[in-house]
Each structure stands twice: as C-alpha cells, then as structure tokens.
C-alpha cells in the first residue's frame, strides 16, 4: 500500500524550499508566538506550569478554540459572524429555560437548541447571499437581536437574568458526561472540552486540506465569481459555514452550561471579536481565501495562555486587552508580509 509516485525534482525550485514551504503555511507565525508566550509565563510565574495551571489555561483555550476554528473556516470562506458569541448564550439559555421551567426532556432540549442555532445560522447565510450585503452588517444585526432576546426573554420567563436549578433536571448527569466531565491525564484534571477542541481542530484541518468541501471553502473566499463559473455550489458552501459557526456556538453553550450548571443571559456577549482575533492571529486573511484551522486553534491557545498567565502573574488584567490589540496588529503585519512573500500577483 506504500505506492509512492516518483518524486519529480525540478532544478528551478530553490533548494531552500523548506523554509519557503514553511512560510507558505498560515499558522507558522502563531506557532512561534504561542511558544514564546508559553516560555515567558512558564519562567515568570510559579503557577503556569503546575498541573492545575496547565489545566486552567487549556480549558480557557478550548472554549475559545472551538469557536475560533469555526470562525476561521467561515473567514476563509470570505464571511464574518458577529453573532457567534451571543449564540453561545442563546443555546445555553434555551436548554436551561425549557428544561427547568417547562420540564422538557433534557436530550430533546439539546436537539431543539441545536436546531434553532442551525436555523439562525442558515438565516444569516440566506440574508447575506440573497441581498449581497456584507456579512459583517447582517450578523451584527443578528448579534443585537440575540443579545436583546436573550435578556428580555430570560427575564420574562424566569424573572431573573440567569438559570437556576439546572443540576436538578432529570438526566443532567448523563449529559454532563459529554459536555461537563473531566478526566485525569498526567496528574492534570482535564476538562472534556479540551478533547472537543482537539477533535474539532483535527476534523476542520482534514476538511480544509483533504476534502472537496475544503477546496470549495478556500475557493468561495478567494474568488467567488470564479468559483461559481467552475461549478462550485457557492450558496451551499456559505450556508454550511454559517451553520457551522452557529453549531459551534451551540457546542460551546452546552460545554459551559453543563460545566457550571448555570448560564447568564449575557453569556458570550463581547467574545465575537476575540474569535475573529484568534483566527487572524492564526493566519486567516480578513479578505478571505486564506488561513488555517490549526492556526486558529493556536490563536486561541495564545489567548488562553495569556488570559490565565496574566492572572498567575498577578498583573492588572486590563493588560490583556492591550496585549490582544498588540497581537492582532502584529499578526496582520505578519500576514501582509507572508502574502507578499508568496508573491501573489493581483
């Protein structure tokens, strides 16, 4: 089964091709930055490398990472989704409210929340594709709608802004196995979300680089008219991408709900830009058509490490925002450089 094609060696390819090939990979910058930040906090704080410390920043990174990977796929496909953060709250609230207030079966509640999320994702895609409006604006509208509805509806039904009594719902513990459990690894108490994060990153990478759908995602983000001309089903691809970010929002909503057994009506608000920043730090171009899932996962790792590293170092956590801005600027500059290196003529 190890049938290999004869390697065609061409003298016109510079022998220094390895570095060039590496530079062509979008996630290289993020990998270097992640390593630097890892070393920095490992050396400068006591807690960072302890088992508890590692488990903490990996958990943080995992929740952002799942979203960042989905957002990266969408950005490679040439679109944004600003409603992705609010979706985390919406899905958590749906499950929380209909199980605790109305006694709906918990598994059914999961399915209902997922269906609603996917429908909202599809609606985003539909409006964007049918009107030709920028997804930035369309999903900004969705974001505000979800934010408002999350708060208003939660208040009407529960009289408060959070869900109580979730852990008393029948079947809670069974569902918790999938979304809120932990396992022990090398003495670390790892949250299950880390497994989801790694699995989703691996799956997304395989889809992007090794499947037809992945080819189409790059194509619709890179040149939508060309894609249409060669028969790529543009509408289907974009629809799938918006539904993926919505679905990822549902997953993270469940991971949070079943971890802490409650959900606030404001959950996820303000995170949408962090997902985009993670994706960009991971090498996604804002203009679409270029990027990587591994890069986005690394972007989230950088964010998770910094978020917790600043706590461990006992710095004022306002530095996090400043750091994030700096990272973003640096990433955009690196991307610009890489793009020029790749020598793509316009």
């Amino acid at each position: 089964m190890t049938l290999t094609a004869p390697a065609v060696i061409d003298e016109r390819i510079k022998p220094t091709g390895l570095i060039q090939t590496l530079l062509r990979r979008p996630e290289v910058g993020a990998a270097v930055a992640a390593l630097a930040i890892f070393i920095f906090f490992s050396v400068s704080t006591q807690a960072f490398l302890t088992p508890a410390g590692v488990a903490t920043w990996l958990y943080s990174a995992s929740l952002f990472g799942i979203m960042a990977v989905a957002v990266a796929l969408l950005m490679i496909g040439g679109e944004f989704d600003l409603s992705a953060g609010a979706m985390v709250g919406t899905t958590g609230l749906i499950v929380g409210i209909i199980t605790t207030e109305w006694g709906v079966n918990i598994w059914l509640a999961l399915v209902i929340a997922l269906a609603i999320a996917l429908a909202i994702g599809a609606a985003n895609a539909f409006v964007v594709m049918k009107t030709g409006l920028p997804s930035f604006i369309v999903t900004l509208a969705t974001f505000f709608i979800l934010q408002g509805v999350n708060l208003a509806v939660t208040k009407i039904i529960t009289g408060t802004v959070s869900i109580q009594g979730m852990s008393a719902v029948p079947g809670f513990d069974a569902v918790k196995v999938f979304f809120g459990s932990s396992f022990s690894l090398f003495g670390m108490d790892m949250k299950i979300s880390i497994v989801w994060w790694l699995a989703i990153t691996a799956l997304a990478t395989w889809i992007l680089l090794r499947t037809r759908s992945g080819n189409w995602i790059f194509a619709v983000g890179g040149q939508v008219t060309s894609s249409r001309q060669v028969g790529v089903p543009v509408m289907k691809v974009k629809m799938g991408l918006f539904m993926t970010t919505a679905g990822a929002g549902w997953l993270v909503g469940m991971l949070q709900l079943f971890d802490v057994s409650t959900v606030q009506a404001t959950t996820g608000i303000g995170q949408e830009f962090i997902y985009i920043i993670c994706a960009v730090v991971g090498g996604c171009l804002l203009t679409g058509g270029y990027g990587s899932a591994i890069g986005a996962a690394l972007g989230a790792l950088i964010y998770g490490m910094t978020l917790q590293g600043i706590v461990f170092a006992q710095w004022d956590n306002n530095w996090l925002k400043a750091f994030l801005g700096g990272m973003l600027l640096l990433a955009v500059l690196v991307n610009l450089y890489v793009r020029r290196q790749a020598g793509v003529r316009s």
Partner: peptide, 10 residues
C-alpha cells in the same frame, strides 16, 4: 473567461 475563473491564492 477574461478573468480566467481562477482563485489566485490557491
């Protein structure tokens, strides 16, 4: 087509 129906970055 005139624009060749290619995706430059791919």
């Amino acid at each position: 087509y005139q624009d060749l129906a290619v995706v430059p970055l791919m």
